[in-house]
Every structure is written in C-alpha cells, then in structure tokens.
Design a protein around this nucleic acid. Structure first.
Lengths: 148, 148
DNA sequence: GTCTCTGCAAACGTTTTGCAGGCAA
DNA sequence: TTGCCTGCAAAACGTTTGCAGAGAC
C-alpha cells in the first residue's frame, strides 16, 4: 500500500499524473509520524526541491485528501494538519491534544471498542438520517504532563 | 443555568463584567440550535445593536469559550462555529457533518454508550500519558440525503 | 474614579485564485 | 502534442492586535 509504483497506479486510476511534488509529499508523510502543516510540508519539500511553490502544496494536499490518501485535521492552532490515511502504512488511531502547548499524542487504546461503537453509531445514523457516512474523527483535549 | 441573573453572577465570579454585547451573544446562542460562525453572530447581534464591532464578537466568543459557557467547533468550512456548552440548556450530543453542503445534524443516539466508552478511554489515557483530560469531540462525516 | 471593555482601523497568517508557461503521458 | 500540472503574484478570507475613548461597577 505504498511506494511510487502503487502511487502511480492509484493516480492513473483517477486520471491524474504522478509528478515530483506529489511523490515528494507522499514520501515525506510516509516517513514521519508527525502531523504536519502545509507550511511545514513546504519547508521540508523545499529542501530537496527548491522550485516548489506553496500553492502546489495546498493543491496537492487537497487532491490527496480527496483521493483518500491523506486525512486533514484541525487541532485548533489556526492551520490544517495532515497525515497519511489509516490503512496506508498507518494504523487506526485517534488524537490527544494539549490545549496549552499544542502537543499531539496518537493513541490506539480501546480502538477495538471504539470501532465497534462507531460501527453501531454509523449504522443507526445512516438509517435514521439517510446519511452516507464516510469517516469520523475523535479527539480528546486536555493538559499534558509537562504543562500541568 | 441561564438568564441574565445567572450570567451576571457567573461573570462576577471571574472578575468580569456583564455588558450588553456579552449578554446579547449569550441570549442569541441560547435561543438557537444552530452552530453559528462569528460573522453570523455579528450579523444577528448587529440587528438589535448596530454599534457592535466584529472584534468584540471574537473577543467575547474567546472569553465565553474560556469560561466554559460555549464550545468552539471546526466543521471544515474554514471558520469556527460556536454553540452553548452541554449542561447550559443543551443536552450532550455530537455532530454529523455533510461534506458536500455543510449541513450539520446534532445526534444523541448511543450517547449513553459513547459516554461510557469515553470515560474508559479518558481514564486509560490520563494514566498512560499523565494527561489531564478536559473535553472531547466526536464527529461523523458523510453525505446527507439531499446531496446523495 | 477606576479599570475593564469596546470599536475602529490596520495588520496578520493561512489559504485560494488567475494566468502564463512547463512537463507527464 | 495534448491538456494536466505548476509557480508566481496578488487577492481573499477569517482572525488578531494597538490604541484611544466609553461604560460597568
């Protein structure tokens, strides 16, 4: 579920092209466990490909989110953050956000139970509201050990 | 848990003053079940108090969130949205967001089970990461009946 | 009267758009 | 060769800040 070959295939399947910026962004997010912002991604890619523009970063991120390869998050710091979607090299997890310093912890405790409940809720909501549910986000907010 | 009297008391307790803009914003959010943005709140308050400035709206919303009277949400439409906190005239609920038209449905199915699981997760995370957990947000994303 | 609160204007940072040129297929 | 993709510049947008005056207590 990763690497240039698979990506090319995935892009072709949607009628898109595999270009250097797209590949670079996917590779970067494959290698990190952080939740990077557009600017951080720009800085990192800029180091290996100085010709890149911020606009391309934004457009590429939108595309990858739309293709289901990335997930977009808002942790309340005024900018969107991105990570590889679950299943694409990453395990299912949720986030624990420190409201003081912005630190984010990925946790996967009780994920089994969560998934079970989420399934039940999704089924009930789909029926009750005739909604086609695609995704969910669960976040906990608090104060981390350092900030206490 | 509402009304000018209770509010005044609550403000005084924190060393704040109960002013017209603060009262108007609280009253507005008490009366609606919608998830209003700063601009929408501005427009609504502006009708009964044309002297109000957008700045005041933002500052007041921040204050009310910090006091625990409001909750701030991001539904992915590029602006923050606000509603009365649970317990202040509102029942505990979560959100179902249409990614096409932005429609938001408040649901409270399985809230009992959710709260139970949330408690378990909170306990586990508090211990494991030494985190003081204050809040959580759960959102489902999908496509509503009209947009299908 | 004190000190908080407010409105205005301007600034700020992130994200989006228009357009001409570049490059994958 | 085609037309998707890119970079630049500029604009748009939500939000924040500085400051002088107004108003709650």
């Amino acid at each position: 579920m990763s690497g240039p070959h698979w990506w090319r295939h995935r892009f072709r399947g949607c009628g898109y092209r595999l270009t250097f910026p797209r590949q670079a962004i996917l590779e970067l997010l494959s290698k990190t466990s952080k939740h990077l912002s557009a600017k951080e991604i720009y800085s990192a890619v800029h180091k290996i490909y100085p010709a890149i523009g911020l606009t391309t970063i934004y457009r590429t991120l939108d595309l990858l989110v739309q293709m289901g390869l990335l997930k977009k998050f808002d942790f309340g710091d005024g900018q969107s953050r991105y990570e590889l979607a679950s299943g694409i090299k990453k395990n299912h997890h949720h986030h624990l956000v420190c409201v003081k310093c912005g630190k984010i912890i990925d946790y996967d405790d009780f994920v089994k139970e969560e998934i079970e409940l989420v399934k039940k809720v999704e089924e009930a909501l789909s029926k009750k509201y005739n909604f086609e549910i695609k995704d969910h986000k669960i976040q906990f907010y608090g104060i981390c050990s350092k900030c206490k």
